[in-house]
């Protein structure tokens, strides 16, 4: 036994795996699934398509035209969030999670790498979709309506912050996926949390409404000027500014990822 054992030279290199290796693994996993690209393509196409439709349908130049041009982010975000969920839960459904955690036993590192890679991809796609939707809308406005330009106050900010919203909601989905681990349940919680509960609270409790994800996206991120509810200002919540809105959404995502990472490290895989 010993004679044979000694013929095996140790070939394990120095150092240790870290975030770079984990991120490389997650990038290969993300890009090697066709569903990733389909979902991102449909997200971008939907966002841009709605921007064009809004542009064609705009009859007066009085409202916040930038906000209108970015109306497509609301359904687009749902897809990005769902993709974030599936990036995590897909590993549990298929059993890949065991292979992943055997390769990278420091589990919070796995989630950090996923968040970095998925966050970067959705940021790029989100910014592209947001800018293209803005320009497509501007190009399709009818004669006589002055199209907004990026040089006008708040316009560039609205477009950039809206693009970042894709990334943040995607990361929120990823965190929920890590917490809940079942695809359907996690997508359900995401939709309920972002869309349904936000709507209910928006009606019932005006104080909290400004902090609901969907209302932040609609009324904080993509606006160039503070939203007012016309004549009936008493029933109108005091909405967050664009950056504060992005910060609150980011906080939700960070909380979901932190809880997800903590559970991932604690639970049996």
């Amino acid at each position: 036994m010993t004679a044979i054992t000694e013929t095996r030279a140790p070939r394990v290199p120095g150092g240790r795996y870290g975030l770079a290796q984990a991120a490389r693994m997650e990038w290969i996993k993300l890009r090697s699934l066709r569903s990733t690209w389909w979902t991102l393509a449909v997200t971008a196409a939907g966002t841009i398509g709605i921007g064009v439709a809004v542009g064609l349908g705009t009859r007066s130049g009085s409202g916040d035209l930038t906000n209108n041009a970015l109306a497509g982010v609301v359904p687009g975000l749902l897809l990005t969030g769902a993709l974030g969920v599936l990036t995590m839960t897909g590993e549990y459904t298929s059993g890949t999670i065991r292979a992943t955690l055997a390769a990278i036993p420091r589990r919070p590192l796995v989630l950090a790498a996923k968040a970095a890679v998925f966050g970067a991809v959705t940021l790029i796609v989100g910014e592209a979709a947001s800018f293209i939707a803005f320009f497509a809308d501007a190009a399709t406005l009818r004669h006589g309506i002055a199209a907004p330009t990026l040089g006008q106050p708040g316009v560039l900010r609205a477009v950039v912050v809206t693009g970042a919203g894709f990334c943040v909601i995607g990361l929120l989905g990823l965190g929920l996926g890590a917490i809940i681990r079942h695809s359907a349940a996690a997508v359900g919680v995401l939709v309920a949390g972002v869309y349904v509960i936000a709507g209910v609270i928006g009606i019932v409790a005006h104080g909290a409404a400004a902090y609901m994800p969907l209302l932040i996206v609609e009324n904080s991120l993509s606006t160039t000027k503070p939203v007012t509810c016309g004549t009936d200002s008493a029933s109108c919540p005091h909405f967050l500014s664009a950056w504060a809105g992005l910060g609150v959404l980011g906080l939700y995502a960070v909380i979901a990822l932190a809880v997800g990472g903590w559970l991932l490290a604690r639970r049996d895989a």
Binding site: M25, I28, S32
Partner: peptide, 25 residues
């Protein structure tokens, strides 16, 4: 080797192994 199907059905065998290879350089 823990279970027969510890891989994503939508991913090719090569990509599955490439991802694992990358994780450990």
């Amino acid at each position: 080797l823990l279970e027969a199907r510890a891989f994503h059905p939508g991913r090719s065998a090569r990509s599955h192994l490439a991802a694992l290879a990358a994780s450990n350089a």
